[in-house]
């Protein structure tokens, strides 16, 4: 069971309180009704699924109930950092500390 730091509760909390919510930083197009099929495909269907660092959304469902963003390593499962929904994709990531 992972420990996840909720940026709203400012505390590491057990994974049981959270739910994964897909890739982050995919904004719903402003005037969605007018976008092309290709643009809709990119927005709705295509996901990066990287090996390594992934930017993804989580919800502290059984805690503060907030959605937030996380940077996680898909190989080690380690959370590099978490930040509030709406905040920009971090330009620099914290150094991996300790082991």
């Amino acid at each position: 069971m992972l420990l996840i730091r909720c940026p709203y509760c400012e505390e590491d909390r057990p994974e049981l309180e959270f739910r994964h919510a897909g890739e982050a930083h995919i904004a719903r197009p402003e005037r969605i009704a007018a976008i092309s099929d290709e643009a809709f495909e990119r927005y709705f269907f295509l996901r990066a699924n990287p090996k390594g660092l992934i930017y993804e959304r989580w919800r502290h469902l059984h805690g503060c109930a907030r959605f937030f963003n996380a940077v996680r390593d898909t190989v080690s499962d380690r959370f590099v950092m978490t930040y509030k929904a709406g905040e920009p994709k971090p330009e620099t990531l914290p150094e991996e500390t300790g082991r």
């Binding site: 909390r13 309180e17 805690g63 503060c64």
Partner: peptide, 8 residues
């Protein structure tokens, strides 16, 4: 004492 949280 006095702490509260939604949890499982």
């Amino acid at each position: 004492v006095g702490a509260a949280s939604r949890t499982v």
